[in-house]
Amino acid sequence: MRSSLKEQIGFFLRCRIPIFFSLLMVLLFFMPIHSVQINYFRPAIGLICVYYWRLNRGSLFSWGSAFCIGFIIDVYSSSPFGVNILLLMLVNGTTGWLARYFQAASFNVRWLIFSLSALFYMLIKWLFLMSYFWDYLPLAEITMGYFSTVMFYPLIATINAWVATRFLPPENIDEQ
């Protein structure tokens, strides 16, 4: 049965919720905290969102989505333009591969996999930026950022899960 244009547009927009919601979360976590110390505990929200959506609703989260989130993060950062795009596309690719094995795993297992992957991604970024600037970047702040990212994962995952069940089309009628 052919659905109406309005329904098709509605369906198209619902399929774009993961990317729009991720962008909103990323912007939300850019807001000023007015504390230098707490600033170091800012989680890498883009990393969490890309990992979550790619693992849980991979068909609604494309390479282009990861690119867009990385793009926004790069604009709001002073690191070389493209670093976060490359990193999040790497996250997208590797999580897509991991999804084959862990899509049906329990939440705790997914969290554990995330904590290990986040460590890997942050180390890559750290090494890349050190070689780019040819300068040593202190590990303490990045370690704090890593731990806050891991600690924030359950909260962001719960919010994302709520969005998925409330607004997204059921998995068996995904767009692709």
């Binding site: 000023p32 170091y40 883009g46 709001y76 690191s79 930026l129």
Partner: peptide
């Protein structure tokens, strides 16, 4: 007016 801060530990900037 400051409306945003850098979103990660790798950069220190304001918008």
């Amino acid at each position: 007016q400051i409306i945003a801060e850098s979103g990660d530990n790798f950069t220190h900037l304001l918008l």
